[in-house]
Design a binder for these strands. Structure first.
Length: 595
RNA sequence: GCACCCGUAGCUCAGCUGGAUAGAGCGUUGCCCUCCGAAGGCAAAGGUCAUAGGUUCGACUCCUAUCGGGUGCGCCA
């Protein structure tokens, strides 16, 4: 696999670094300066050139000279650079750089050269990252509330892969708590039903959903009437195992509808059912460090706890690691708290080689972050790092009206219903077209609209429009290949230096931003930035396309100039490639034509 | 009471881990289709970035306090 060449911004940053180091060698700047805070970024205003660096301002204090003086010194070095057309010092010490137009042509060639690898990065340095997401309780089908976290986690994982990390996608199966016993009892009822018994109404406290009917039938087929004479203690484990397996199968199939897969499904029960009790081992580990003690907790504030009992309990010293209070590890019945299992679980992640962990949780778990991060610190001696991404609620609407009830399940809308109605692409893109920590309105009617108001359509249409241009261009360039790999190869030697219209150069600038966007979005764990970037790119592309209406000389296909046409097709191809690449990161398809 | 998240244009939201005169879509207003690329395009208006302090060359971004909205607060997962 070829390593993509450093992108334009990284390239220019390296030149700025080199200039600083040269000045250090000459004694103009002190030796050993920390260049970490030096950045090269696109300018917001065209009058400031193409790129700007803050080098002089950042280094001024340490170098003990005026920013302007340093800026002039760096600028003088950069003026000799073969990539740079002009250098200006402005404002408090910005160094504004204008690149030679050849640099943009080179950047465009890089897109065609790297093909689908364009934008891929090595910042991740193949470091292992564990991304845990979904982890819905195995007690029923997935509902809409789950799908934002599912899509977010999946896109984040793809983004990290694209940025060069070694990513493991993981699902934690909560198969050890009381809720799976409830599931087992609910399934047992359906088992009796399958054997012809009249079960009447589903009792309060059990899961009423029809989705358990097939589980009951499967149990009847496997066990016959054997379980009927057994006590609950006897039949429950087998029924539970069967029911959980059935629920997980259903969940996997729901996820498959969104093209989401996990490499690892980690069972909570496996922590305690193996040869060694890993939860006990983890508690012992913490106890040996002095982080476990017997003590009392003040009663909880907020809503009163009716069965509150002040008692001495086994506590983890979470406050020593940044949490607000110490947290219990054992319940009054002697069983492990969910938190205790969770510590052991995250310890296994670390023990499996993941120093970097990302968990994607729903907004109602926000209060749980500190204690798990505290636990990870304790259990990994500060080596492991957990970033928790909270995804906010989705408000499901239809034409602006809230959608509450479900046709199928009665009390919640299933993920499957939503995907069936609007398609995976619309769900995925819209879930990512917002910061994860902001609540999201999802309107079933609007997301399938084929208009500019619908970002999903707008971006996909950009890709399709590119292909439409290729199809039309074949009337003139009859040997233009339709297959994308061959077409890219065909366009690779196009005379892209002929692209000099400001609108074209603007699009080239936008394309050059993509690799930098991938890196920063990956480092920030923010896949939504890619969605917004693609929207901007599509917008620029559509704008250029429509300019051809008033200005025929700007059309992509110029019938009497094959060389220019080919150059413009190279630009179109680059846009198409980047749109396809970005959509792939988001898990959204890039269609060749809109139906 | 405490912790965490949010507060940016009339509405829905971006703002690239501290950069220059805060951006986009919708909506509003004004132009642009006898024909060639209008499932539209161009342009304008619209802001005390919740408020008040602080940190520094520089703050929507970091810190403190206050106001408003949300979430959570032994032995649920």
């Amino acid at each position: 696999m070829s390593v993509p060449s450093p992108h334009l911004f990284a390239n220019v940053l390296a030149r700025v670094h080199a200039a600083c180091q040269a000045l250090a060698a000459e004694g103009v700047l002190p030796a050993g300066l920390d260049l970490a805070r030096v950045v090269v970024e696109p300018t917001r205003e065209a009058s400031h050139g193409d790129m700007a660096t803050n080098a002089a301002m950042v280094l001024a204090k340490e170098a003990k000279s005026k920013p302007k003086d340093i800026a002039e010194a760096i600028a003088a070095k950069l003026r000799d650079d073969d990539l740079i057309a002009s250098v200006d010092v402005a404002g408090p010490g910005f160094i504004n750089l204008t690149l030679k137009t050849a640099a943009w042509a080179d950047a465009l060639r890089a897109v065609l050269r790297d093909c689908e690898r364009y934008g891929h990065s090595a910042v991740g340095a193949a470091e292992k990252v564990n991304v845990e997401y979904v982890s819905a309780n195995p007690t029923g089908p997935m509902h809409v509330g789950h799908c934002r976290g599912a899509v977010f986690g999946d896109a984040l994982a793809s983004l990290l892969v694209t940025a060069g990390y070694d990513v493991n996608r993981e699902y934690y199966i909560n198969d050890a708590g009381a809720q799976v016993d409830v599931l087992a009892r609910s399934a047992f009822l359906r088992y009796r039903e399958a054997l012809g018994q009249d079960i009447g109404a589903i009792p309060e406290g059990l899961y009423p959903g029809d989705y358990l009917v097939p589980i009951g039938q499967a149990l009847a087929a496997e066990f016959g009437e054997r379980l009927l004479n057994q006590s609950e203690a006897e039949w429950l484990p087998a029924v539970r195992t069967k029911a959980i397996a059935g629920m997980m199968e259903m969940i996997r199939s729901d996820l498959a509808a969104l093209n989401i897969t996990h490499e690892v499904f980690f069972s909570e029960r496996s922590l305690i059912s193996g040869e060694t009790d890993l939860v006990a081992a983890t508690i012992d580990f913490l106890r040996a460090k002095g982080d476990v003690y017997l003590g009392r907790l003040p009663p909880p504030k907020g809503k009163p706890v009716d069965d509150y009992e002040d008692r001495e309990q086994t506590l983890f010293r979470a406050t020593a690691y940044g949490d607000d209070v110490d947290r219990p590890l054992l319940k009054s019945d002697g069983g492990y708290t969910y938190f205790a299992s969770d510590i052991a679980y995250h310890k296994t992640k670390f023990d499996r080689g993941f120093r970097n962990m990302v968990d994607v949780w729903g907004s109602d778990h926000g209060g749980y972050i500190k204690r798990v991060q505290a636990a990870i610190k304790a259990v990994t001696d500060g080596q492991g790092v957990l970033d928790v991404k909270i995804v906010q609620l989705v408000k499901l609407l239809r034409n602006g009206e809230p959608v509450k009830m479900s046709k199928r399940s009665g009390d919640f809308v299933t993920l499957r219903e939503v995907v069936d109605e609007v398609g995976s692409d619309a769900v995925r893109f819209m879930m990512l077209f917002r910061k994860n920590d902001a609540v999201l309105d999802f309107d079933l009617a609007k997301v399938i609209e084929q208009s500019k108001d619908n970002p999903v359509f707008y971006v996909q249409y950009g890709h399709a429009r590119g292909h439409s241009i290729f199809r039309n261009a074949r009337e003139m360039l009859t040997d233009l290949p339709l297959e994308s790999g061959a077409r890219i190869a065909y366009l690779r030697d196009a005379a892209v230096e002929r692209l000099d219209d400001p609108a074209e150069l603007g699009l080239m600038r936008q394309l050059a931003l993509y690799p930098r966007m991938i890196e920063s979005a990956a480092l920030a764990h923010e896949p939504h930035r890619i969605a917004f970037y693609l929207y901007d790119l599509a917008s620029d592309f559509h704008a250029l396309w429509t300019r051809g209406r008033d200005m025929p000389h700007l059309r992509f296909i110029i019938t009497n100039d094959a060389v220019l046409t080919k150059a413009r097709l190279a630009l179109v191809q680059s846009v198409v490639s980047v749109l396809a690449s970005g959509l792939a990161v988001l898990g959204v398809t890039a269609p060749d034509e809109m139906r």
